[in-house]
Write a protein that binds this DNA or RNA. Structure first.
Length: 394
DNA sequence: TCTGGGGTCCTAGGACCC
DNA sequence: TCTGGGGTCCTAGGACCC
């Protein structure tokens, strides 16, 4: 989806169309910047002068999405808001409204599966679609179906998207970047040398800042230069698994299937404080946040129908360094009090002398609530070990 | 001008078991 | 006196992605 969060906001506030808008920052900080007295107006009629400007924003945070008008100024995703304010002070800033984006996410995905049922979720604004078995999916190399999907999504949501069509997920992902926004790009195997090899290695999904830095240090900037290296050379420098993967990727090869209906591995909540907190001096405040995070994770688990038995905490200190601590307990839980208890145990094992910037709570080793029930109801032949794990004596 | 929040996967060491 | 081999689970950190 093109500039997804920002585009959803423009549906609510069409008066912002064409203007530089960034989404991000803490809700409290952004709300404080919104002038009072306009609450009764329909959203679409709120005058431009009432929207908060990036130059007035003082809180922490990064940009999650910028409109294309804002990108003209060099601001973009993951950029700190204070830095962005220097580049584009007149941009309007809006707080992130995840529930709203979730609604549109479910909507556009249901539009797709109506047309092409084999779809892999790749987060809130991205999917892989298998065109192979869709009637007409091969016409004009997939262009016809891509256009159909774009139109159906636009008609249902008013949102645009960009589509890459290719023989595998690796190439399709790269192709989707070629023609943004609202574009279609078809990449065939024979386009490898002309379209893929000139690109920076960083364009490969899976090569991030660290791997790219290492590649550059070895004199490799483009995918073509990567493809010119021999397998054993890559294995020497990056290890067996990564080296082999890089070799295949540089040649445009990728045999991964679409993974459908995957189960979550962990569920977590974390928050960055408005100011750094000290474990002793700000104990009350910290404790309240900690409890709230546990309650939120518990509520997420229950709503989604999962239990977990590995409870973890995450800390980030004022120097931005972080630690995690895990605690696996002998039963599966989803209630706030039990999570808080286990997370408290984990927290005790972390250094707490330095000021804290972030606190997070995570529950992993998940099982579906239904499966836990089935064991306890003895409707299936239970293993005694599983009984003991799920419902120990204490 | 410091750098969000929600995830997945991989690696590596140690405990523990047979 | 100088100690195996295989497997699983747990923990911590880190890279990466949306």
């Amino acid at each position: 989806m093109d500039a997804f969060y920002a585009s959803v906001e423009l549906l609510r506030y069409p008066q912002l169309k064409g203007l530089p808008v960034v989404i991000g920052g803490g809700r409290r900080a952004v709300d404080a910047a919104i002038a009072p007295g306009q609450e009764a107006l329909p959203l679409g009629e709120i005058p431009l002068s009432q929207f908060p400007l990036l130059k007035d924003y003082t809180g922490r945070g990064v940009i999650t999405t910028a409109t294309y008008a804002a990108r003209q100024f060099g601001v973009g995703s993951a950029m700190g808001l204070m830095k962005a304010a220097k580049l584009c002070p007149q941009a309007i800033i809006l707080p992130v409204d995840f529930p709203e984006y979730g609604k549109y996410s479910r909507l556009f995905k249901s539009v797709i599966t109506e047309i092409a049922p084999v779809m892999q979720d790749r987060g809130v604004d991205e999917v892989y679609i298998d065109f192979t078995e869709v009637p007409g999916g091969q016409r004009e190399g997939g262009r016809v179906l891509a256009r159909l999907i774009q139109k159906a999504i636009f008609d249902a949501t008013g949102l645009t998207c960009s589509v890459g069509v290719a023989p595998n997920k690796l190439l399709a992902k790269m192709a989707s970047e070629f023609n943004k926004p609202n574009g279609i790009s078809v990449v065939l195997e024979q386009d490898l040398e002309t379209l893929i090899w000139p690109l920076a290695c960083r364009k490969i999904n899976g090569i991030g800042p660290k791997a790219d830095e290492k590649l550059q240090a070895l004199g490799i900037k483009t995918i073509g230069e990567l493809a010119a290296k021999e397998l054993h050379w890559l294995v020497e420098h990056f290890g067996r698994a990564t080296g082999a993967w890089m070799f295949e990727a540089s040649h445009g090869r990728d045999d991964r299937e679409l993974s459908l209906d995957s189960e979550p591995v962990s569920i977590s909540r974390e928050t960055t404080f408005e100011r750094d907190l000290h474990a002793v001096r700000d104990k009350a405040e910290l404790s309240a946040v900690f409890t709230r995070l546990c309650e939120q994770v518990a509520s997420d688990l229950q709503r989604k129908g999962y239990l977990g038995k590995t409870i973890g905490i995450k800390l980030r200190y004022d120097d931005f360094k972080g630690v995690t601590r895990d605690q696996t307990i002998d039963r599966y839980i989803a209630d706030a009090a039990s999570i808080r208890r286990a997370a408290g145990q984990a927290l005790k094992r972390a250094p707490l002398t330095q000021r804290l910037r972030l606190l997070g709570v995570r529950v992993g080793a998940l099982i579906k609530e239904d499966d836990a029930k089935r064991y306890s109801d003895n409707k299936e032949t239970p293993h005694h070990e599983q009984d003991a794990l799920l419902f120990p004596d204490d």
